[in-house]
Structures are given as structure tokens and as C-alpha cells.
Write a protein that binds this DNA or RNA. Sequence first.
DNA 1: TCATGAAGCGGAACCTATTCCGTTTTCGTG
DNA 2: CACGAAAACGGAATAGGTTCCGCTTCATGA
Lengths: 224, 224
Amino acid sequence: MREVSGTDSALSIGSRAPARGQGEARAAGSRRADAVRNRGKVLDAAERLFARDGVERVTMQAVAKEAGVGVGTLYRGFTDKAGLAIALLDERERQFQELMLSGPPPLGPGAEPAERLAAFVAGYVGLVAEQLELVLLSQTASPGARFRSGAHALWRTHCRHLLDLAGAPDPELRADALLAALSGEMIGHWLSEPDRDVAEITSAMTGLSRSLASDPATPSPGQG
Amino acid sequence: MREVSGTDSALSIGSRAPARGQGEARAAGSRRADAVRNRGKVLDAAERLFARDGVERVTMQAVAKEAGVGVGTLYRGFTDKAGLAIALLDERERQFQELMLSGPPPLGPGAEPAERLAAFVAGYVGLVAEQLELVLLSQTASPGARFRSGAHALWRTHCRHLLDLAGAPDPELRADALLAALSGEMIGHWLSEPDRDVAEITSAMTGLSRSLASDPATPSPGQG
DNA sequence: TCATGAAGCGGAACCTATTCCGTTTTCGTG
DNA sequence: CACGAAAACGGAATAGGTTCCGCTTCATGA
């Protein structure tokens, strides 16, 4: 199954690249051939089952069976169920990270810090909303899971940096607070309420990010 | 065990009152005597074990055994493990709720909305930090658990109301965002970092709450 | 007081994530 | 190519939360 691309489900993200990052064992260099093969089979199987049955109703047993490996292999390649989700999210997150680090403004360098932050928030909300189930799995598998993902460290650093440039007080804590407000749990909750959609959330949260970024010593820039 | 007070552990909160609220069955009126008795035994046992072994290492089996009841009884009286935590937290939360609804300013009525909000944040941070383990259990038992507790609805309404009075945009979403930033997970994470204590968190978060409360159309009040 | 239906009880059974460990596969070396 | 150590495998076993259901206890009212 899956050779080097082919037609894929809506969740698909193309052929499995060498990969690195969270919830995975050693560096790509010293991986045994069978391990690499199995890793791909597992990700394919998980993607397929998650898309078909919904993340929550897919058991690790089922993933193992679909992939044709033992459960032990799942846990060797990925730390736990959350690790599976993190690996599946990895691709999209990296695309976004690239845009945010070196793409065009306002997301990328060149715009005012507060505007870059707002652009980050808008993009991040979209990312989370689009992959909500996987994000939820990756963030709520265990208390504090959110903070342990490699991607999170990057979001956090980026926000902290922009808040710092904008002159906001307590940039570290505010970065954390902002990301907490954008957790899968929070966004999922908002989306579950009637009359609430991604656009409204995005608009409110970008506004909030501007409030967070404002240095209280500076008179707020006129806006109405 | 426990008759009508007596000497208790640090976690203790006095004799078990009639009680109502989240994770509990019917209204107090129509409860059978044995159910009421068992409810008390279970709360006592849980309190004792949680204090002794740490919330996470106490199993439902163990609570049942310590209380001298079957596990089924645990689940009849409380929805799940989180329900147990919610019930144990109930007392303190109600005290705080009372102060916030009708106590002296700035927490209670009488102060400016933004100041009341800051006071709320300060008190809430203390509440969470003080009972961190229980709060974590109650909030992270399942995704979205946070939003389902009765107490949460009240915090949320209060914050929304104050933000509204202060003229902040999107008061509902901002109230949620603020509470997300004060989740057990977030505060626990902050406290786990070196050189970070409740005072610093409180100061940063009250500041953040003031930023959230400020109406962007109004020039920010001078501050330094 | 006794009968009776409802409320509550207990704990075995179930479902899953996760761990453990004996067996198998790789792959660098002689 | 043959060996041996290291890496990876597989799946049975473990552990803990939650559900189920037949049995017991309560409380009502005749």
C-alpha cells in the first residue's frame, strides 16, 4: 500500500518523508530498514482509519492490525497515541512554520510585530480548526501534553518574540496565555457552539492578540 | 469515620453539607439515607487518599475500598473520577463565588469592572494553584471537561459580564480566552518552571486581564 | 407490621492504552 | 558468507477507568 504518492484521502499529505521531530526515536541516519517501512505503514493505516472512523473511535489495536504490525511496534515508533497524532500533523505544521519564519508579510518578517502576531493567530486558528480531531488528540492525551510537543515550543518562541518586540509586558506568560486560548480544546468548544464559525473566532482572537501586544505605557493607536 | 467535624487533613473542608451541583445525581430532597451516608464516606476516603498518595496515583478501586463501598457506588454518586474532584473542590469554589458576587470590592460589586476582573483573576489563580491536583483532575479527565462544570459556567458569566461593562470587544470569547489562560494545565505548567511563583503569575495575569478589558476605542489610561 | 416497587449497591466483566519480554531481523565485521 | 550484537518485532499481560446487571435495602402506604 502506498508507494510514493498516489491518490489519497482528504487527510493525506503525500508520501512519507524521512521525518524527524517529536514522539519519534533516533535520527533518520541510523534507522533499520524494517523500522522505516513500518513507520510508513503505521502512518498510512492511522490516517486511513482516523479519516474513516473518527480519531476517538480508533484503537491502537486497530491501527496495528490495519498496518499489519504488532502494537509494540506502534509504541516503539511513536511514544503513544498522541505521538501518532503529532506525526500526522507534522507536515502541515512545518509548512506553516516556514511561512511564518520566512514567508511574505504580514505573517512573515517585514510587518509590525502586532500585525505579524495577528497574522500568526489567524493562520494558527485555521490550522487547528482544520485538523481539530488530531490536534485534540495530540494536546489532551495527557495533562500538559500540549507543552511537550516540539511544534509548541516553536509557536511559543515566535509569539514571545513578537510580543517582546511590540513592547508588551510579560511576553513569555502572554505568549503562553495566547496559545492556551487557541488550544484545540478551546477552539473545539467554540466551534461546537451554535452560530460560531472560524471567521468569527479568527476575528475575535486577532483582536485579542492586538490587545495583548499593546504596551500599556503607549496610548493605544487610534482605530475607530 | 468522621462524625460531624473532627480533626482533619490539610485538604479537609469540614463536615459534608447537603450539597448540590455537578457530577451528582438528583436534588438532595429525595435521596435515600444510605446514599447520603455513602456519599460522605466516599468524599472522606477520596480526600484522605488524595492527600496521602497524590491524586494521580489513587485509583477508583482504592477509593472504593477505603470508603468501604463498591466501585459501582462511586459511579452512581459521581459521574466519573473528575466528578469526585469537582465535588471536593465545590466548597472552596462556593466561598469564592460568594465573595465575588456580594463581597467587598474590588472583588465584589462597587469597583470598576476592569478592577473587579483583575481581582477575580488574582483570586482565581490562588484557588487553582492551591488545589492544583484536583483542578487538573477535574479539567483534564476528558477533552472539554472544563467547560462542563457548573462552576465554570459561573466564572465565565462573571468574566463576560465584567468585560462587557468595561466595553471590551467580544466579551464572551475573551472571557473564555481568559479562563483558558488560567486553566489548571496552564498554571500548573507555569508553576513547574523554575523561578516562577504564584505572585508572578498573578501579577502578569491581572495585567493581562486589564489589557483584555480595555476598549480599543478609548485611549488607554496612563499607568506609568 | 408487612408487601412492594424504586433506589441503590457491589463487584465482575469490559475496553483500551501501555508495558514487558522472549523471539526475529538487520547489518556491520571478520 | 557466516556471526553476533543491536535493533526491532509481536502480542500476551497488565492496569485502571467505566459499565452492567442481578441482588439488597429503603421508604411508602395499606
